[in-house]
């Protein structure tokens, strides 16, 4: 036995069983390390976060795809949409008018939502939360648009309007997002929750309008 052991060249040890086992262990260890790094490090959210361009009502907020300026904010429990239908909410309809000017090429801001201080997101829809972009806006020609979004009254104070191009929130990563502080307080919420005056939601129009 001892003689055979001596006769074997030392390098053959490398082709023995521990080599295979070590390979398997290393492979699994590498995968596990990759998985652990991916889940433990905050890279996913941090690296993919959108760039928030912030401002208030009346500020011209510049983004990669154009600029946005909120011109007025109002609220009530009732709205009249551009097709003449009246919607009644148990919460509050927040109606925001703003001007969008595209940059570079015709573009459509398809994602419009109100975000409250708790982080809840209230998006527009076709009928219940009307917003019509009027299609892609030509660069340099201001497009006046309006959105009405129903939210619970406790979401009004401190609410922000969030606007960006991509309708799928997954695609907001690393893109510009305009965030407008609507400057709302609890007093606005209380007054609007008690108001039964139907607010009209304007149809999209081009040009600077009467406001500016």
């Amino acid at each position: 036995m001892g003689g055979r052991r001596v006769a074997r060249p030392p390098s053959s040890r490398l082709t023995g069983l521990p080599r295979q086992a070590a390979f398997a262990v290393l492979l699994v260890a590498a995968l596990a390390t990759g998985r652990a790094v991916e889940t433990l490090m905050p890279v996913g959210d941090e690296v993919a976060a959108p760039f928030e361009r912030t401002g208030g009502v009346g500020d011209r907020i510049e983004a990669r795809w154009g600029d946005v300026e909120v011109t007025s904010v109002a609220g009530s429990t009732r709205i009249e949409d551009p097709y003449g239908a009246t919607h009644v909410t148990g919460g509050v309809y927040v109606v925001v008018d703003w001007t969008y000017t595209a940059a570079g090429e015709p573009q459509v801001p398809a994602w419009v939502a109100i975000r409250d201080t708790e982080g809840r997101v209230f998006r527009t829809s076709l009928e219940r939360n009307p917003y019509s972009s009027g299609g892609a806006a030509q660069p340099g020609i201001p497009r006046r648009v309006a959105a009405a979004i129903e939210v619970p009254a406790d979401a009004v104070a401190g609410a922000e309007l969030v606007i960006t191009l991509e309708p799928n929130p997954e695609n907001h990563r690393r893109d510009d997002v305009a965030v407008v502080d609507l400057g709302l307080t609890q007093d606005d919420a209380d007054a609007w929750a008690a108001s039964e005056e139907p607010l009209e939601v304007a149809e999209p129009a081009d040009g600077p309008g009467a406001m500016s």
Partner: peptide, 18 residues
């Protein structure tokens, strides 16, 4: 449809009861 106004409910917002 929303009973309060007879319009179609195409989006349910969080925190509201319909």
């Amino acid at each position: 449809y929303v009973m309060a106004d007879g319009t179609r409910l195409d989006a349910v917002q969080p925190g509201l009861e319909y």
